[in-house]
Design a protein around this nucleic acid. Sequence first.
DNA 1: GCTAATGGGCTAGAAAGTAGACCATTAGCC
DNA 2: GGCTAATGGTCTACTTTCTAGCCCATTAGC
Lengths: 240, 240
Amino acid sequence: MSERDDAPHDFSRAVLQPVSGYQAVAGFLRREMALGRIRPGDRLPPERRLAEQLGVSRETLRQALRILEGSGQIVISRGASGGAIVQDAALDPRLIREEVRTRSAEIGELTEFRSIVESGGAALAASRRSDADLEAMALAQRDLAAAVTKAESRIADTDFHIALAEASGNSFVRDAVEEARVRMFEPVDLMSFDFVKESSWAAHEQILDAVRRGDGEAADAAMRAHLRTTREEFTRVVES
Amino acid sequence: MSERDDAPHDFSRAVLQPVSGYQAVAGFLRREMALGRIRPGDRLPPERRLAEQLGVSRETLRQALRILEGSGQIVISRGASGGAIVQDAALDPRLIREEVRTRSAEIGELTEFRSIVESGGAALAASRRSDADLEAMALAQRDLAAAVTKAESRIADTDFHIALAEASGNSFVRDAVEEARVRMFEPVDLMSFDFVKESSWAAHEQILDAVRRGDGEAADAAMRAHLRTTREEFTRVVES
DNA sequence: GCTAATGGGCTAGAAAGTAGACCATTAGCC
DNA sequence: GGCTAATGGTCTACTTTCTAGCCCATTAGC
């Protein structure tokens, strides 16, 4: 075995910060929003029901809702058919550009990581996809084509990538894709880029076609090309 | 946009279980052991110091130590130069085989995921590795060659894969490799397989050689071949 | 105007974590 | 043998967080 330091272990950098219940709940809901499983206009279940589903007390859930309310992600109203309505957070483009610039190193690494995982996932999907998988991807493509707002484009884009990851049949691939996506979009809450909708749609179409044909190598290459374009788009934003 | 269900969201399956502080600390320490950053024979820092480094109170840390003590991973003694000594958990091979059989589906997916991420990481490492990276990998190889016990082999193997992931220069790749490794080895604490030491060493050598030459494609292919062998080894264990 | 559904708010208590003090044990040195 | 320092063992008082349960306030629809 290699020479081990006799110096005592140093875990000073291992922060291990405690996440209180209400923070965990707020984080969970934000994540669901970032992944588009909860979308602008949706109404959350009543507090009592949601609290039970999440396995926390109502007070804890309410603290989480206060956080989301504070950041403008939900609006809460009282009375019958009241409740928490998810908002469409239309961020100032200047804020987004600033955010991308601040996190440019992280976003670059993230895109590189996505390229590895998603191209591998696409190759797997080419040999495993079911008809339902293909239909889910095709639906996301139709949504992307029909998207008008930036938020709609982003959601349809997410749907496509998640559906593809799901089609890979590997739960670790799917989780990694989800996690990377959350890391990319969650921090600024619905951050979106001036990505060219048409070019994304065309790239997805190529990927989908390769997956449909069962051509793993082509699917792999198409996904890599797609995310290379994405990365170049980020660079463009940072330098603009 | 696609037709959204009007039915209320259902988060019943989102368990979101609270992780208390002592569980988080115990998990952290187990993780460090699984990754070989804490090794059999090592002595943990004194409670007061470790608690401060981890940012928890001493009582909380002590509860975590009780858990590790209970599972036989550490032995605690009192007095000057006392403390917690990490144990070498030599598991019964029958238990290991049973564990692998129970988790065979998960381990299969995990190895597939590793193959994707680590081959991509190897390709990156080929173009980015520093001399220090190469030296770390070479050291792990020397350790593997010199390993006598199973635990030593496993640690040297981990060292190699982590050093390679580090050399990729992508922190998400490194984290994913660590995480996959923990998932593979942590649950049964130092689970190890009857993997052929020599074949692993030879495979590593091929990877290292490709990384040294800066040949990304070869590094990618060599890593995929290596993990294919690993997977076949698992299959063999399951079927034996 | 009644009713039901919904969020708002309060209290009492349990559970977990913290901070600090002091005790018990042990190795090493004189 | 005894002293000292380092270490784990134990206890208490306090704070924060979470829970459970109850009732109030508001509102849409009949």
